[in-house]
Design a protein around this nucleic acid. Structure first.
Lengths: 218, 218
DNA sequence: CTTGAATTCAAACAAATGTTTGATACAGTT
DNA sequence: AACTGTATCAAACATTTGTTTGAATTCAAG
């Protein structure tokens, strides 16, 4: 069987495929590149995973199970809704942007989310929904009862979308802002802004984007 | 030369390429598909645009100049900041999601934004920055003077990111919400939510996501 | 040692894909 | 009519790419 399960050919293929699929997409990746990086023979893919598509599917499946802290976190009992939201945003953003990380986990997932294949349903159920449910739980603590289910989802989307932006559109953001000012866009600063913006939107904190909290007209 | 400039081979190639690149990406598109849809000979691409890459670049360039209303709009003089922001969000979202439209313009741009090639810089300057500047102008009317340039950009990003989400992650959103409730996610409803959420964040309207506007603690 | 299954390998294969070629038709100009 | 540059075309070309093949190699069990 496999001498060292960590250095198994099959395993090497999975991680190599994950990295390459994540960076150039399914069509962009060639089986030769993947086998090259995995130091495996060209036939290995078909031996272990039927075909390239099977390898992709397996790579996506292997990519999750890597953020237990966002799937079911345990907050200090002293935490307010605002505290929970702040740490949620911070954790989520770190996971997306932290340069040190296998990184391809998140990238592969984002790719699959933007252009779904068959593997998408699986990924949503196994990985995304748990994270979404914790956010929903945080929000439902403070959202008024009159809101519909759809409206609650929209609130959640408003928050995660702000985070996703800095991952998916990082290049555009940098071009717009300019490389100089873009130094201000560190994870902590971004997280801080998103939390502030969202908490004000939810009415859980006064808006930090007005001079006098009193007046509200033009 | 060209008998009918609207039915020019070169022009047919451009729109065919735009549609196909937009839907399957650069690597996913084959020159034969493109020439097939354009009813052009296989050599036409190389004749008019040197190579496939040249065609892509030309297609991206041809994709902009299609939203003058967001680049330099003229508001009724009665419009408040809130009014402007509401219509900006609505217009922007319509342009992204409206199913009837050449559509590939926006799709091709989003693709280029998410995975930038050489054409990205060009696209940002010609197409995105003008739209970004109108948003910045709207916001700067109400943002306090103490905010830095970077912070102002972040506020803008917080707003557009919410819109972009429903384009790029539509599939995931639908899976999460469920096909039934997803009927509520019409353009107008989404625009309405995003405007409400953002205006509250900016302190330009009371939050619609709290019961009593008085208390602010847990 | 032998057997037999699991794994690895070099080589080859067929299909797809971007590009080139050389011929042909067509327009306008001299 | 002869010439010229543009445009279109069918065919072929050279690579790339996913996959298959059949022979080696490994290795544990009998």
């Amino acid at each position: 069987m496999s001498p060292d399960p960590l250095d198994d050919t099959r395993q090497r293929l999975l991680t190599a495929a994950g990295e390459i699929f994540a960076s150039v997409g399914f069509k962009g990746a060639t089986t030769r590149d993947i086998c090259g990086r995995a130091a495996a023979n060209g036939a290995a893919i078909n031996y272990y995973f039927r075909d390239k598509q099977g390898l992709y599917q397996a790579a996506v499946e292997a990519a999750h199970g890597c953020s237990p802290e966002l799937a079911n976190p345990h907050w200090p009992s002293s935490f307010t809704t605002a505290d929970k939201l702040r740490t949620y945003v911070s954790k989520f953003l770190s996971q997306l942007l932290d340069p040190e990380r296998p990184a391809w986990h998140a990238r592969l997932m984002l790719r699959e989310m933007a252009e779904p294949t068959d593997a998408c349903v699986l990924l949503v159920e196994a990985y995304i929904r748990p994270m979404a449910m914790t956010l929903r739980a945080i929000l439902d603590d403070s959202l008024p009862a009159r809101l519909t289910e759809s409206q609650r989802w929209m609130v959640g989307f408003s928050i995660v979308s702000q985070c996703l932006f800095y991952k998916t559109n990082r290049a555009v953001a940098k071009l717009l802002v300019g490389s100089a000012d873009f130094n201000d866009f560190q994870v902590e600063h971004i997280a801080d802004h998103i939390a502030r913006f969202s908490l004000a939107a939810l009415g859980l904190a006064p808006s930090a984007f007005r001079d006098s909290p009193a007046e509200a007209k033009r």
